[in-house]
Design a protein around this nucleic acid. Sequence first.
DNA 1: ATTATATACGACAGCCTGTCATATTACAAG
DNA 2: CTTGTAATATGACAGGCTGTCGTATATAAT
Lengths: 225, 225
Amino acid sequence: MPKETFFRLPKEKQQRLIDAARIEFSKSSLQEASIANIVKLADIPRGSFYQYFENKEDLYFYYFENLRSIRTQDIEACIKEHDGDFFIGFETYFRQLIEDVFTGPNVDFYRNLFLHIDFKATNRFSPESMADDKMSEYHHQKMKKHLTELKHLIAAIDTSSLNVKTERELIMLFKLMMSIVFASINSGYYKQKRGKELVVKELIEEFSTKINWLKNGVYLGEKGE
Amino acid sequence: MPKETFFRLPKEKQQRLIDAARIEFSKSSLQEASIANIVKLADIPRGSFYQYFENKEDLYFYYFENLRSIRTQDIEACIKEHDGDFFIGFETYFRQLIEDVFTGPNVDFYRNLFLHIDFKATNRFSPESMADDKMSEYHHQKMKKHLTELKHLIAAIDTSSLNVKTERELIMLFKLMMSIVFASINSGYYKQKRGKELVVKELIEEFSTKINWLKNGVYLGEKGE
DNA sequence: ATTATATACGACAGCCTGTCATATTACAAG
DNA sequence: CTTGTAATATGACAGGCTGTCGTATATAAT
């Protein structure tokens, strides 16, 4: 999280930093990017950077959360839009997400994000637990917020026609779905590039196939419990 | 891939490097680890390191592939063991994998691996495609080998009772399964630690639940096509 | 013995991070 | 308007790390 000082800065200076972040993190992954480059791009002295942010990651996730294309609330909205239908809701969400990720104004940023993000960071999207010891107070708060949002989302799901017995299972199902979403996006970056639209179309089809498996089962024949 | 020189080295010296890799990569993630540390541990001059390996990653993946706990062949064996049953085969595989990862001699290495590996590197387990331009000849070969192994594995699956129409869909299903495996392992690192055995037990149960969803569908009631 | 080839070695250029002492500005209180 | 305090700005710097390169040494072949 940016420090107080950053938010007290004139908007124009803040924007310079955000622009620099976009440029640098579109060109390089979080790992490859350097503060040296960012301060050069934003034309601020190196010392100042550390007055605004803890480190590279701090700026990165601030930038990322400002785009906020992966929001629990968005998923929740999609599910509510379809009367609590978990699967239809998620397909709707996936369609808009994939569109943004592959054809929106931040394609390059997303490319680096999804190719290089590690599993641990995945928890910034769907929090696993609060068990991590070395977590800053800020992160602790963030996690708490995420968990609240998650509970909220969970509550919006109509479970009457789902084979899900407990809330714990429902959360498992949600996380399973999220991992399918991430894997699906990722596979998009490896498709032969005949044009973004085709890739998007193919991804949506494949996602549907997967969701259908999950909905109705991969086994043929009668459903037995 | 290590350079020729490395393989011509006396076994003892090779071992020193492998040991150093284990120590360093158990203490730090690939990202945090440093060659400086490794050469200090192995007691070889820095210059020599570059005579044996391209870089840090080179040693890392050499070490990793020497453990080889995640092998297409292992999965194939498990599936064959159960007469081509994809799901039973995978559950068997998962059980032995999770055991190795959480209680085997390389727990710390695996911890860093699974928490910090990025999605792109995931392709070293289940290759996505050959489309990556900036791929070395070596990697190209590796990918080809992986793909061959994958085809082989795919052929061992009995699809007669699966709702899978094409080979392409079968590969999709396999990859879906792999992403569930990774996500499952990962979630293990966030569980309250009441002891490894309990975590392993819980993970296996959760994996079963997920597989059951995938087998029979999350939707209740009659199965419709 | 001589020469070519493979290996060993550590100094070094170049890059990066996070900090710190110092300079500058903003602002409140007298 | 002046003075003191807190906030902000700034770039030099210590300490690390990577990959390379010139030189030294060993090995083998003739």
